[in-house]
Deep mutational scan, measured.
Amino acid sequence: DDWEIHFNNITIRLHGVSEEQIEELKELIKNGAHEEELRKWAEEVNR
């Protein structure tokens, strides 16, 4: 699925990401992940 997530003036566009991966991302954000951590997560997902 395609997703677009907005938070802290950042837009993250995701393509072909599962519901499970979105839940992981929500947890990262909820736990106060920094932009660098989110980038690493996105790189892993996009492999």
Rank of each mutant, 00 (worst) to 15 (best):
N31S: 12
I10Q: 06
L25Y: 06
N9S: 11
A42T: 05
L25V: 05
F7P: 01
R13F: 05
L38C: 04
S18T: 12
E44Q: 13
I10G: 06
N31G: 09
D1G: 14
N46E: 09
L14Q: 01
I5Y: 08
N9F: 07
D1P: 13
L25R: 00
K40D: 13
L28I: 05
N9G: 15
E35H: 06
E37L: 09
I22W: 08
Q21L: 13
W41M: 09
K30R: 14
N46G: 07
N8S: 09
R47C: 12
E27T: 14
L38T: 00
I5H: 05
L14G: 03
E35L: 13
E20R: 11
L25H: 00
E37K: 05
N31P: 00
N31T: 07
R39E: 12
Q21I: 14
D2N: 13
E4N: 06
L38E: 00
N46W: 06
N9I: 06
I22M: 09
N8P: 08
K40N: 10
E27W: 08
S18W: 04
D2K: 12
G16A: 07
N8H: 10
D2F: 13
V17I: 12
L28R: 03
N9M: 11
I12E: 04
I10K: 05
D1C: 15
E27K: 12
I12Q: 07
G32H: 06
N46T: 12
E23G: 09
K30C: 09
V45S: 02
E44C: 06
L38K: 01
E23M: 13
G16L: 10
D2C: 15
E27I: 09
E44H: 13
S18V: 04
V45T: 05
W3Q: 05
H6N: 08
Q21P: 00
N9K: 07
A33D: 01
I5M: 10
L28C: 01
D1Q: 15
E19G: 10
H34K: 14
G32D: 03
A33Y: 04
E27G: 10
E24Y: 09
A42K: 02
Q21D: 08
T11W: 01
A42G: 08
H6Q: 11
A33Q: 01
I10R: 04
L14H: 02
I29S: 01
L25Q: 00
W41N: 03
A42Y: 14
K40R: 14
N46F: 11
S18E: 02
E35Y: 11
I29N: 00
I22S: 02
G32V: 01
E36K: 06
A33N: 03
G32P: 01
G16R: 11
I12H: 04
E44W: 00
E36H: 06
L14A: 04
R39S: 05
K26R: 13
E44P: 00
N46M: 15
D1A: 14
W41K: 13
W41R: 08
H15E: 08
N9Y: 04
H6W: 03
E19I: 13
H15G: 07
E44F: 01
D2Y: 15
V45Y: 11
W3T: 05
N9V: 06
E43Q: 02
I12M: 02
A33M: 14
D2P: 12
D2S: 13
E43Y: 01
E43I: 01
V45C: 05
G16W: 12
K30M: 12
R47Q: 15
G32Q: 03
R39N: 11
H34A: 13
I10C: 12
S18Q: 05
E23L: 14
H15Y: 05
L25P: 00
A42W: 14
E20N: 11
L14V: 13
R47W: 07
D1R: 15
E27M: 13
L14W: 00
D1N: 13
V17T: 03
Q21E: 07
H15I: 12
E20G: 12
H15R: 04
I5T: 04
D2I: 14
A42H: 04
L25A: 03
F7K: 01
R39G: 06
F7E: 01
S18M: 05
E20T: 10
